[in-house]
Computed example of a mutant assay.
Amino acid sequence: MNITFNGTKGFVVTEAIKAYTEKRLSKLTKYDEDIKEIRVTLSAVKSKTGPIQTAEVRVHLGGYNIIKAVAVEDDLYASIDKVEGILERQMVKYKEKHKEDKYIAAAKAEQKIEYNAEERLIRMESTKKIVSVSLSPKPMHVEEAILQLETLGKDFYVFINADTGEMNVVYKKRNGDYGHVEPENR
């Protein structure tokens, strides 16, 4: 793993800062061993409200995949810590996404292809698996369902709304907010 440092606007990157940053960013290898290069850009600006310390990191993975994070804090070490946390979350998402890609590739491999020479036809047949899950949702309020969603680390959570008695679903949106799905009463 190659780490390069840049300082902007006359900012000098000291050996202590380099060592601290390398120590923090070396944790990223547990998420992906194929990290080609990490580029770190550090800057410090004085403003009326106080110093602004910025850490920007670009992680170059295999192929053209780049993960980028920026953190701004009053303290440079705090911004390095924050950017490391952001990168860890992004690396987990990246790893999960590529794990799903492997499952998709495996599903495509389950396709059967037959060639009939007499008719000069290619027939392709694929098998798709449907997994059935039975639920016994419990009555609770929406806030409790969101807490269960976070506690279990799931993408969605099915429950019986204690207020209406109807089956509802809560889910986490990409922007970090929560969605609530309930049946429409006509």
Results as ranks from 00 to 15, higher is better:
S47K: 01
K93Q: 09
S134W: 07
K30S: 14
K154N: 11
A71G: 08
H98D: 12
F11Q: 01
T21H: 03
V131K: 11
T4A: 14
L42R: 00
L87A: 02
M91K: 00
A71N: 01
T54C: 08
G153Q: 07
I67Q: 00
E37R: 14
H98S: 09
L152V: 11
V181T: 04
K30F: 06
I113R: 07
K112S: 10
K128C: 11
L87W: 00
K30P: 05
M124Y: 01
V13Y: 00
L76W: 03
E22L: 05
D155F: 02
D163F: 07
E96T: 11
L149Q: 14
A145I: 13
Y94V: 10
R186M: 15
K129A: 07
K27V: 11
L149W: 04
E119I: 14
R39A: 15
D155S: 13
L147D: 08
A145T: 05
E73R: 03
L121N: 03
D163I: 07
D75K: 02
R39P: 01
P183T: 13
D74W: 06
K9F: 03
M1W: 02
K154R: 14
V40M: 06
Q90S: 03
V131R: 08
N185E: 15
T41R: 06
V142K: 11
K27S: 09
A78M: 05
E166S: 08
S47P: 00
G179P: 04
V169C: 09
K23R: 15
E96Y: 08
K93V: 10
E22H: 02
L152N: 12
M124L: 13
T41K: 05
K46V: 02
I104T: 00
F156M: 15
A106T: 06
D32H: 13
K138A: 11
M1T: 11
A162D: 15
M124V: 15
A107K: 13
H98R: 15
N2H: 07
G50I: 08
K23T: 15
E166T: 09
S134V: 13
P183F: 07
I66N: 10
A55R: 01
I52W: 00
Y103Q: 12
T49F: 02
G165A: 10
Q53F: 03
Y115V: 15
Y64A: 14
N6S: 04
K82N: 12
I52P: 00
V133Y: 07
A107G: 08
K99F: 07
D75Q: 04
I66Y: 06
E100V: 15
F5W: 03
E88F: 01
G62C: 05
H180E: 12
Q148T: 03
V13A: 03
S132A: 13
A19W: 12
D81A: 05
E33P: 01
E114L: 12
Y103M: 12
